[in-house]
Amino acid sequence: MEELKITWRKASYSGNDGGHCVELADLGGTIGVRDSKNPGGGHINISRDGLDVLLARLKQR
């Protein structure tokens, strides 16, 4: 079985000023979400559909 290389990405318009940012990674069947200020603190997994719903709701705010 081929091992998945995980690449965490932060939004391109997130500055380096220590703001509140999250990072996302393609984990194969799910998307990983973690706190960019605490990358070793673990992550949550969310389905691609779940991420679409989350982002749509955040944009409504």
Rank of each mutant, 00 (worst) to 15 (best):
residue 49 D to H: 11
residue 44 I to K: 07
residue 18 G to D: 04
residue 30 T to L: 07
residue 25 A to S: 08
residue 6 I to M: 08
residue 23 E to A: 11
residue 54 L to W: 13
residue 1 M to Q: 06
residue 26 D to R: 02
residue 2 E to T: 07
residue 44 I to M: 05
residue 29 G to S: 15
residue 57 R to V: 06
residue 44 I to W: 00
residue 18 G to M: 03
residue 58 L to Y: 14
residue 46 I to V: 13
residue 18 G to W: 01
residue 43 H to W: 03
residue 60 Q to K: 14
residue 48 R to N: 14
residue 37 K to V: 09
residue 3 E to V: 08
residue 1 M to E: 06
residue 24 L to Q: 00
residue 43 H to M: 03
residue 48 R to Q: 08
residue 58 L to A: 15
residue 26 D to T: 02
residue 10 K to S: 05
residue 6 I to G: 06
residue 35 D to K: 02
residue 48 R to M: 08
residue 7 T to R: 15
residue 21 C to Y: 06
residue 50 G to N: 04
residue 35 D to W: 04
residue 16 N to K: 09
residue 55 L to N: 09
residue 1 M to K: 07
residue 43 H to V: 01
residue 33 V to F: 00
residue 56 A to D: 12
residue 59 K to N: 10
residue 14 S to Q: 05
residue 50 G to M: 04
residue 35 D to N: 09
residue 19 G to A: 06
residue 47 S to G: 14
residue 36 S to G: 06
residue 14 S to M: 07
residue 14 S to G: 12
residue 38 N to K: 13
residue 33 V to Y: 00
residue 6 I to Q: 05
residue 23 E to L: 01
residue 4 L to F: 04
residue 24 L to S: 00
residue 18 G to N: 10
residue 23 E to M: 04
residue 31 I to P: 01
residue 42 G to E: 02
residue 21 C to I: 05
residue 60 Q to E: 13
residue 38 N to C: 05
residue 34 R to P: 00
residue 48 R to V: 12
residue 35 D to L: 02
residue 35 D to C: 05
residue 47 S to V: 09
residue 15 G to Y: 11
residue 35 D to H: 04
residue 22 V to Q: 00
residue 48 R to E: 05
residue 19 G to I: 03
residue 4 L to H: 15
residue 12 S to P: 08
residue 45 N to R: 14
residue 45 N to T: 15
residue 15 G to K: 11
residue 30 T to S: 13
residue 46 I to A: 04
residue 57 R to E: 13
residue 11 A to P: 08
residue 39 P to N: 03
residue 26 D to H: 08
